[in-house]
């Protein structure tokens, strides 16, 4: 599964994307796996209310299932326009 990061989350994690092998059932489970890696990931994902998630390029929720999903993107609230 490809994981993408944008804006300050990308800067904090240090890479724009990475490929992970995971058996996580939901986005929340995936976040827990990533956060367990090191203090940097844990800090970046500390406040999920400050983050949004997209599954295969559609906005989604942290409780959404990951079955069949190929691309997960995490980012702060959007500021377009």
């Amino acid at each position: 599964m490809d994981i993408l990061y944008f804006a300050w989350l990308r800067e904090r994690i240090g890479v724009p994307r990475e490929r992970v092998e995971t058996g996580a059932a939901t986005v929340r489970d995936l976040v827990a796996e990533l956060s367990a890696r090191d203090a940097g990931y844990a800090a970046a994902f500390a406040d999920l209310s400050a983050l949004r998630v997209a599954l295969d390029q559609e906005l989604s929720e942290f409780d959404a299932p990951l079955s069949g999903v190929r691309e997960v993107a995490f980012f702060p609230p959007m500021t377009g326009g």
Binding site: F6, A7, W8, A54, L59, A73, F75, P76, P77, M78, T79, G80, G81
Partner: peptide, 26 residues
């Protein structure tokens, strides 16, 4: 369209100033 572009289109703005750089908060 403007309301959706502002809050639901995946864009992020960063201000680069003479003092430094900061992401614009929603």
């Amino acid at each position: 369209l403007m309301d959706y572009l502002k809050s639901r289109a995946p864009f992020w703005k960063k201000e680069i100033t003479t003092e430094g750089a900061d992401w614009v908060a929603a």
